[in-house]
């Protein structure tokens, strides 16, 4: 099997690995590295459960080969918290009941993280547009929108205070 050595940064840690060319990024993370936060929900790039952040962009890891991430900087849900300190989004999802079965949550959080990086003060409509590549079957989205709003407000307040 044709394989390739890749090196990348995942959640701040340098990783080197041999991967088969056809290995999808999601399987590389989940099966080779045991980073099981990102999930597989549809396999056709519709549901967003596999969303990770690659070089400052949200992408669907089910439709990218691991070799394409060579040299990249990758963030998954596991890298959102700062040690014991939750990211405001994680806190927002907890406070606003933005999750139920939670299968979508890692992708949702990772996507929302990038959304707030790109647009720190989104309207509800912008949040809905921004999360439109992530399906949730449990929450009806309303509390997810609230949770992202909560996090945006918290981040903006903290920055306003600085």
């Amino acid at each position: 099997m044709p394989s390739k050595k890749i090196s990348l940064t995942i959640n701040g840690e340098a990783v080197e690995a041999d991967v088969e060319a056809r290995m999808l990024l999601i399987h590389f993370l989940r099966e080779q590295l045991n980073i099981t936060g990102p999930h597989i929900g549809c396999e056709t790039s519709h549901c967003g459960a596999c969303t990770v952040d690659l070089d400052g962009k949200s992408v669907k890891a089910c439709t990218i080969f691991a070799v394409q991430a060579d040299g990249g900087e990758l963030l998954t849900v596991e890298g959102l918290a700062n040690g014991a300190e939750l990211h405001p989004l994680q806190e927002g999802f907890f406070q606003c009941h933005g999750l139920q079965c939670s299968f979508c949550t890692p992708g949702m959080l990772t996507r929302a993280y990038r959304l707030l990086q790109d647009n720190p003060n989104p309207s509800d409509e912008e949040i809905r547009m921004g999360l439109s590549g992530n399906l949730c079957r449990c929450t009806g989205y309303q509390n997810i929108v609230k949770a992202v709003r909560y996090a945006a407000d918290k981040i903006n307040q903290a920055e306003g205070a600085n």
Binding site: S45, V59, K60, G133
Partner: peptide, 9 residues
């Protein structure tokens, strides 16, 4: 076209 993640690729 598609959604935010797909548009990134």
């Amino acid at each position: 076209i598609a959604d935010p993640q797909v548009r990134n690729c």
